[in-house]
């Protein structure tokens, strides 16, 4: 869909700033998911602390972007596609903020682990899952910024794979718990990390649904199949 510029240049500038802020926050959230998971896999407490601190930056970016949303709403009283875009970004910002919180949860598990110095041996699945989640999150952000329904559909497709990873981690953790109950803490931690990653994936899905709403004007409920 080709979009004509606004008669008011400042309106376009405001929307562009909003998109940039959202993109920036998306990059930070996806980066922090990767970083927190890496810290978890490496058992690196310093990196984990770094990830936790970076969540404060994400929260700050969230507040800033939300203020920018209010500013555009107030100044230009947007309607139609513009209104949907701003409402979509406003909702997506919340999702990114929650995704950031999940990254922080992952990082916390590094610190609360009884034997953090020991690297995770069963981390292969977690690593792949984290890569997919971070990539999906980035993809959902790009989809909203470019209002691409194609990318949004890819995000929705990825969600099933993320859920499959979570189930796999769950199964293997159950098996590992029976085999080595002495390391129960580590196995439970892995479960929490997988759950956090899966939740992050859900937020990416929510953002993708916002994309569909923004570009088509159809409420997200109508696109949900099950």
């Amino acid at each position: 869909m080709t979009s004509h510029p606004h008669l008011l240049k400042s309106y376009d500038d405001g929307l562009e700033a909003l998109r940039r802020g959202f993109q920036h926050m998306g990059d930070m959230a996806a980066g922090n998911v990767t970083e927190a998971t890496a810290a978890y896999l490496a058992g690196d407490e310093a990196r984990a602390l770094g990830a936790i601190n970076r969540d404060l930056d994400i929260d700050a970016a969230f507040e800033q972007s939300r203020a920018a949303c209010f500013d555009v709403l107030l100044r230009f009283q947007p309607v139609a596609r513009d209104l949907r875009l701003i409402m979509g970004i406003e909702h997506a910002l919340g999702n990114l903020e929650r995704a950031g919180d999940h990254a922080k949860t992952i990082a916390r598990h590094v610190i609360s682990a009884t034997d953090p110095a020991k690297p995770q041996t069963d981390g292969c699945q977690i690593k792949d899952m984290a890569d997919l989640v971070a990539q999906t999150l980035s993809l959902s952000v790009t989809a909203l910024v470019t209002q691409s329904t194609e990318l949004a559909k890819q995000v929705l497709a990825s969600d099933a794979r993320i859920d499959a990873y979570r189930d796999a981690v769950f199964d293997s953790a159950l098996v590992a718990l029976k085999q080595s109950p002495g390391r129960a803490q580590a196995h439970v931690n892995r479960l929490f990390v997988a759950t956090a990653l899966e939740r992050t994936g859900d937020h990416a899905t929510n953002i993708a649904e916002e994309v569909l709403f923004v570009s088509r004007g159809v409420p997200p409920g109508a696109t949900r199949t099950g």
Binding site: H6, Y11, V79
Partner: peptide, 8 residues
């Protein structure tokens, strides 16, 4: 859409 959103 162009009219109500104030676009060219």
């Amino acid at each position: 859409e162009n009219y109500i959103t104030g676009r060219y």
